[in-house]
Nucleic acid binder design. Sequence first.
DNA 1: GTCCAGGGTGAAA
DNA 2: TTTCACCCTGGA
Length: 323
Amino acid sequence: MTLAESNSARADTKHATRHFKLHSDGLDPESTLDGGQAFRWWRVPDSEDAPTYDGVIGSTAVRVTAVYDSAGVDIAVEVRSDDAPTGFQAIVTDYLGIGSDISELRSHFADDPCIGPAIAGFSGLRLLRQDPWECLVSFICSSTSNIPRIKLNVNSIARELGQRVGSGDADFTFPAPDVIAGTGEQFLRDLGLGFRAKYVIPAAEAVACGGLDLFALREASYYEARATLVRLVGVGEKIADCVLAFSLDKSEAFPVDRHIRRALERWYGLPEGINNSKASDFARERFGRFGAVAQQYMFHRERLSQRANWGGDHTVHALPEDR
DNA sequence: GTCCAGGGTGAAA
DNA sequence: TTTCACCCTGGA
């Protein structure tokens, strides 16, 4: 759903349910919402017992909590905006990737040297289905950056140019392409985007004028969609693959960055120094339509292995267990 | 305080 | 195919 659609839907209902639960089959909010797919989710302080995140989906501010009950882990959603669009429960379900069958990934790759142990010990990581425009800008911002800074940049854009939809510090919509296009490169530089500012503006103009229809890429083939995205200045294969995987339904996309390349070299014997494009080809060949989710498990594992308290033996024992 | 790495890309060599 | 500049923030 586009921002415009969600805004018009919003006018229809003023009385959406403010609290609801979703059967998520064990979704883990931390790794899914704050694991590097999306950059506008914030951990609610002191929520160790029930990991809780605040964020905005479309034009609605929400609070997402992992609930542990007798039926297993489930997800509780609280609407923090004044109202929510019709069918908001379905919108959240869609956004969170609930319904994707993780058991199929397990059965196919249980014996995989890298992600086998990861999915055996930890099945809560899901692929989000984000808004393509926000996703595109987020990953343009990711170039030679780090996750804290990407979050800073993307949230600065929302705070300065989006509409307020809640009382929290980060409760803003992500601004539409024409709004961003109307500001200019210097404005984004002043927000701290650095050289990435000169990539965001042309992308915003292309989407705003209709020259680039991001939603149409959901219907296109993987290679066709990737070729389209890569035409944007500042969007190479890695960033295109992230947008394709996290917002455009391309489950075979396999973004390769320095971490993933290192993992592929270590676990699958790829020659050291192989270029990212070839590494991505190898992974797509190996993982097929599970590429995108496999890459997330790989990325998650690499991140954990770098944290001191997770040790460095890279075994299943170094991974968090299902609760 | 300094130093350095960080979910890359595009242009030049 | 390889090398380098591009911005600048957070953490060591």
